[in-house]
Design a binder for these strands. Structure first.
Length: 438
RNA sequence: GUGGAUGUAGCUCAGCUGGUAGAGCGCGGGAUUGUGGAUCCCGAUGUCGAGGGUUCAAGCCCCUUCAUCCACCCCA
């Protein structure tokens, strides 16, 4: 038997899980504060529910197998497609527009790398049944509020629109669908490849001549503003392009009004691989140099046709997804994880076996008072017990010897200050609270 | 799926041109038995990822395999 986790899968030991859990809780709190309700769906879905939604590359990464009942099943690849299934399946029971959040693991049979695992947790917030720019802005605002709540100041959300990509290409005479997709794929790499290499890829993959490819690259790297594109699109009479740009501008204005303007920037070169996106799309990168290379930590977009695949009739939707694991890794790197806050701030020593009962009685009272208290299990030398308390990160140590039992008191030592006091057992809880222990 | 690197005590690593393993940290014990983190003393660590081969002899060479890391692809 090999004692190991599967490739790309991890155990989360308490040292990591404690701050991770705090992070999850605060993300959930932010989503709830923004009016999203919790949803939970199964890890396993019928394979056909998931296949064909993520593009060819995505399909390859699905964990699929046949269950004992000969059903073709697959582990969920993201939280969005299962949400679409839920909305279609339970339409009558849900209030539309439906806003839900979900924090849950997803699985991709990818090749593991730094910041990339086969099992990882996504934190999604989506709005189904609203096609307005306000809905777009609401999910962006919620996502940006998460980053703000976690203390991530150096982050930038790059906002784009599917139709902007196509519109720019149409302006350059790239009309064939295949050439357009090839161009978009290449453009998406502008953040990691030099423009010349992207141009070469466009020539090779999309069949453009050198001049045309150069013009396309130039168009996406020039930093053209929404207004400028809008003027050019209007001149060209490209209504879809104009509409997309209008939408982007409105969303930018709304997010700005919500106080998140500084964290958003229009970026025509953002493309998203997942097939189901139809409107705005976005990716968020951390801008601190220490973690800039780790890839997107929060992305998503509008997918107006996905739910229709299940429901028969279209239900517009938009969502955002926070990559918990990457964000957590980044927070650790940036030293924003808030240290090793002790799981148990109070440690009760046991002087002698017969003193375990009176000690546990006091411990019980403290616990009922809401304090987190760990009981010594092994006994032995007091010095060793103090050492264990210290290693566990305890803030205070309780000592109850026979003298204290007789007097109804307890010795409370503040490990950080190094000082101690003898207090009445009845006052122990309030004394500990006065030390700042909760 | 393609290409590259690595795999030695719990952790980070050392091990010279092949002669059956070391350091630091951590861990355990102790320094006149009701007090931790500092210091000092003592101690245990290990199928050298796994399997096979070459050799009198392999951690070091060869093959296979597994795992990890990096790049591509794609993405959180």
């Amino acid at each position: 038997m090999q004692v190991q986790t599967l490739k790309g899968f991890r155990d989360y030991l308490p040292a990591d899980m404690a701050p991770r859990q705090r992070m999850i809780r605060s993300i959930e709190a932010v989503f709830e504060r923004h009016g999203f309700a919790p949803l939970q769906t199964p890890a396993l879905e019928y394979a056909e529910t998931l296949t064909g939604k993520y593009g060819d590359e995505g399909d390859k990464l699905l964990y699929r197998f046949t269950d004992h009942g000969e059903r073709q099943v697959a582990l969920r690849y993201d939280l969005t497609v299962p949400l679409a299934r839920v909305v279609a399946q339970h339409r009558g029971a849900l209030q539309i527009p439906f806003r839900r959040y979900q924090v849950a693991p997803v699985w991709r049979a990818d090749k593991p790398q730094r910041g990339r695992y086969r099992e990882f947790v996504q934190c999604d917030a989506d709005i189904c049944g609203a096609d307005s720019a306000v809905a777009d802005a609401e999910v962006l605002v919620a996502g940006l509020a998460v980053l703000r709540e976690l203390g991530v100041a150096a982050a930038q959300l790059h906002l784009n629109h599917r139709e902007v990509l196509f519109g720019v290409l149409r302006l350059h005479g790239v009309d064939a669908a295949g050439a357009q997709l090839a161009c978009i794929r290449a453009i998406d790499k502008l953040d990691k490849m030099p423009p010349a290499a992207v141009q070469a890829e466009i020539e090779a993959q999309a069949g453009l001549d050198a001049g045309g490819a150069a013009a396309v690259v130039q168009a996406f790297t020039a930093g053209t503003t929404v207004a400028d594109w809008s003027a050019r699109a209007a001149v060209a009479g490209d209504a879809a392009f104009v509409a997309a740009l209008d939408r982007i501008q409105v969303v930018l204005d709304l997010c700005n009004a919500a106080g998140h303007g500084g964290a958003i920037v229009f970026d025509a070169a953002i493309a998203r691989g997942l097939d189901y996106y139809t409107g705005i799309i976005y990716e968020t990168r951390l801008t601190d140099a220490k973690v800039a290379g780790m890839g997107a930590v929060m992305s998503g977009g509008r997918y107006d046709n996905l739910i229709g695949l299940f429901a028969g009739s279209a239900v517009p939707a938009v969502g955002i997804s926070v990559g918990l694991d990457r964000l957590f890794a980044a927070l650790q790197e940036l030293e924003l994880v808030g240290g090793n806050e002790a799981a148990v701030p109070v440690y009760a020593t046991v002087m002698a076996p017969e003193l375990a009962a009176p000690t546990l009685r006091l411990v019980g009272e403290l616990r009922r008072a809401g304090l987190r208290v760990e009981m010594e299990l092994g006994g032995g030398k007091l010095g060793k017990q103090f050492e264990r308390a210290s290693k566990r990160g305890a803030r205070a140590v309780l000592v109850i010897g026979s003298d204290e039992v007789a007097a109804g008191t307890v010795v409370v030592k503040d490990l950080r200050a190094g000082s101690q006091a003898t207090v009445a057992q009845a006052d122990a809880a309030s004394y500990l609270r006065d030390l700042g222990i909760t």
